[in-house]
Deep mutational scan, measured.
Amino acid sequence: MGFKLLSKLLVYLTASIMAIASPLAFSVDSSGEYPTVSEIPVGEVRLYQIADGVWSHIATQSFDGAVYPSNGLIVRDGDELLLIDTAWGAKNTAALLAEIEKQIGLPVTRAVSTHFHDDRVGGVDVLRAAGVATYASPSTRRLAEVEGNEIPTHSLEGLSSSGDAVRFGPVELFYPGAAHSTDNLIVYVPSASVLYGGCAIYELSRTSAGNVADADLAEWPTSIERIQQHYPEAQFVIPGHGLPGGLDLLKHTTNVVKAHTNRSVVE
């Protein structure tokens, strides 16, 4: 069995187990497998329904001669939608809004960016022009300005110390501490036991640490421990890039980060 097929099978099995364990909360999309990078042309966006009122959005972007996937989250909030992270750029984010209108038909009224990198804030200006209120932590807003990236308009308070959590509509926002970046936030959907790890969490097929220019490698494993301790009931975990899975993604990420750190020390 090929690795790609095995990865998709694991996603399907995880979703099936969740649907059985929580039949009222989960209505997993039966329309197909989780979209992969090879299936999404740059400039297009796919939506994948995880649970009743919960979707991931998947886009792709060219970077350094390669094409990478990027995940975000959409959560229903009454007759409105909360968006977590842009679709990595203005063109993708405009396509995301169009796809949401086509498939869901509810307005996106608020959006949260989970850290300051372009795959999370690139497209904020498109959201703002569409009347979406954009939010991020003060740290993310400051770092985005320093980096020359787009800056969300509103500040999220109460997320300055490791372990801080605040309720934001249908989700809980959690600051686990520094990891992929010093400002990275985690998003949890309690009604569906869905954990969105953003770039602080890796997919299972990833074996290298990737972009760690703004990471705190020493603190990252401790931050992941905080996530595990705060959300032990999480059933569906979405990484910032690639295929979702279960809580095993947290341990896998820790292993990859520690291996990278150990290699760096040896070198």
Rank of each mutant, 00 (worst) to 15 (best):
267 E>A: 07
93 T>N: 02
59 A>F: 02
51 A>F: 11
15 A>Y: 12
142 R>M: 13
69 P>G: 10
138 P>E: 15
229 Q>D: 05
43 G>A: 13
140 T>P: 02
47 L>W: 01
66 A>K: 11
33 E>D: 11
181 S>F: 01
71 N>Q: 07
169 G>L: 03
243 L>H: 13
181 S>A: 09
174 F>L: 13
237 V>D: 01
29 D>N: 07
63 F>K: 13
8 K>W: 06
215 A>H: 04
203 E>S: 06
234 A>F: 05
1 M>F: 03
22 S>C: 14
252 H>E: 04
66 A>G: 10
177 G>N: 00
37 V>T: 12
186 I>C: 03
157 E>D: 15
64 D>E: 06
157 E>M: 15
246 G>L: 04
98 A>P: 10
103 Q>F: 15
204 L>P: 12
259 A>S: 13
108 V>G: 02
207 T>F: 06
252 H>G: 04
145 E>R: 12
162 S>A: 10
28 V>P: 15
235 Q>E: 06
181 S>E: 01
14 T>K: 12
84 I>A: 09
243 L>A: 08
241 H>W: 00
40 I>F: 07
76 R>C: 04
40 I>S: 13
230 H>Q: 13
23 P>Q: 07
232 P>I: 14
129 A>N: 07
186 I>K: 00
15 A>M: 15
71 N>T: 12
118 D>W: 07
165 A>H: 05
148 G>W: 07
42 V>N: 15
125 D>F: 08
243 L>I: 14
39 E>K: 14
250 L>R: 01
41 P>W: 07
38 S>G: 09
204 L>C: 04
150 E>I: 05
209 A>F: 10
205 S>M: 08
225 E>W: 07
220 W>T: 00
86 T>Y: 02
11 V>F: 10
35 P>Y: 11
230 H>E: 10
172 E>D: 07
68 Y>W: 04
225 E>V: 11
196 Y>F: 06
190 P>H: 05
261 T>V: 14
62 S>Y: 10
206 R>V: 08
206 R>Q: 10
226 R>V: 14
120 R>P: 02
112 V>Q: 02
31 S>G: 11
73 L>E: 02
138 P>Y: 15
139 S>V: 08
137 S>F: 07
224 I>Q: 01
132 V>L: 07
157 E>R: 14
245 G>E: 03
198 G>M: 04
34 Y>H: 14
94 A>H: 09
144 A>N: 04
219 E>K: 07
110 R>D: 06
137 S>K: 14
252 H>D: 02
132 V>M: 08
55 W>L: 03
97 L>F: 05
211 N>I: 12
82 L>K: 00
102 K>M: 15
155 S>T: 13
24 L>C: 12
87 A>T: 01
23 P>V: 13
162 S>L: 08
82 L>M: 11
81 L>S: 04
135 Y>K: 01
91 K>P: 09
216 D>L: 13
60 T>F: 06
2 G>F: 13
49 Q>T: 12
226 R>A: 11
52 D>W: 06
258 K>G: 09
238 I>E: 01
34 Y>N: 06
122 G>V: 08
261 T>E: 07
190 P>R: 06
210 G>K: 06
163 G>C: 03
34 Y>C: 11
167 R>Y: 07
39 E>H: 07
51 A>H: 06
135 Y>D: 01
52 D>H: 05
265 V>E: 13
243 L>K: 09
209 A>I: 06
94 A>F: 12
70 S>T: 14
183 D>I: 02
208 S>T: 12
155 S>P: 07
21 A>Y: 13
215 A>G: 12
12 Y>N: 05
148 G>Y: 08
242 G>T: 03
120 R>Q: 03
248 D>F: 10
29 D>W: 09
79 D>C: 08
78 G>R: 10
133 A>I: 12
208 S>H: 15
167 R>P: 06
266 V>G: 14
130 A>P: 04
185 L>G: 02
239 P>W: 01
157 E>N: 15
38 S>R: 09
73 L>V: 08
130 A>K: 15
262 N>K: 09
123 G>N: 04
157 E>G: 15
230 H>Y: 07
71 N>K: 02
108 V>Q: 01
101 E>W: 13
221 P>N: 06
98 A>W: 11
156 L>T: 05
230 H>P: 04
246 G>Y: 08
114 T>A: 02
176 P>G: 04
141 R>V: 09
177 G>A: 01
162 S>T: 09
81 L>N: 01
217 L>R: 10
247 L>E: 11
128 R>S: 12
85 D>T: 00
266 V>L: 11
194 V>R: 01
20 I>S: 07
208 S>D: 10
152 P>D: 01
95 A>T: 09
236 F>E: 11
14 T>A: 11
50 I>R: 02
102 K>A: 14
18 M>P: 05
257 V>G: 01
109 T>Y: 12
39 E>A: 10
173 L>A: 04
42 V>Y: 11
192 A>N: 08
27 S>I: 10
162 S>I: 11
57 H>F: 06
66 A>E: 10
150 E>S: 12
50 I>S: 03
6 L>W: 06
267 E>R: 11
1 M>I: 04
192 A>C: 04
240 G>C: 00
257 V>R: 01
149 N>T: 14
40 I>V: 11
41 P>M: 12
151 I>L: 11
174 F>H: 03
74 I>F: 03
85 D>H: 02
36 T>S: 07
255 N>W: 10
130 A>T: 10
227 I>Q: 02
31 S>P: 10
54 V>M: 15
90 A>V: 12
65 G>E: 10
29 D>G: 08
135 Y>G: 01
120 R>I: 01
221 P>M: 12
20 I>K: 07
61 Q>S: 14
107 P>M: 13
66 A>Q: 13
81 L>I: 13
75 V>P: 01
109 T>E: 13
150 E>Y: 12
266 V>I: 04
140 T>H: 03
19 A>T: 14
146 V>D: 11
52 D>I: 05
187 V>W: 01
18 M>T: 05
47 L>N: 00
167 R>Q: 07
22 S>P: 14
106 L>E: 14
219 E>L: 11
172 E>P: 02
77 D>R: 04
13 L>F: 06
85 D>C: 00
248 D>R: 07
212 V>C: 04
215 A>S: 12
90 A>N: 09
256 V>H: 02
139 S>F: 02
173 L>Q: 00
145 E>P: 04
162 S>P: 14
100 I>R: 01
83 L>C: 03
36 T>K: 12
19 A>E: 08
205 S>E: 09
68 Y>F: 09
19 A>W: 14
7 S>F: 15
166 V>P: 04
64 D>N: 15
169 G>W: 03
3 F>G: 05
126 V>C: 05
189 V>M: 05
122 G>D: 13
259 A>I: 06
148 G>R: 11
65 G>V: 12
22 S>F: 15
96 L>V: 14
186 I>Y: 03
54 V>E: 03
93 T>H: 03
197 G>T: 04
67 V>F: 11
220 W>A: 02
110 R>N: 15
196 Y>V: 04
60 T>R: 10
220 W>K: 00
86 T>Q: 01
84 I>T: 04
264 S>F: 06
254 T>Y: 11
104 I>F: 04
152 P>E: 02
62 S>N: 14
217 L>N: 14
130 A>E: 09
74 I>A: 13
61 Q>T: 09
3 F>D: 05
148 G>E: 11
239 P>T: 06
74 I>E: 03
74 I>K: 01
199 C>Y: 03
83 L>Y: 01
90 A>D: 09
219 E>N: 05
229 Q>S: 13
33 E>W: 11
82 L>W: 11
207 T>M: 11
145 E>C: 13
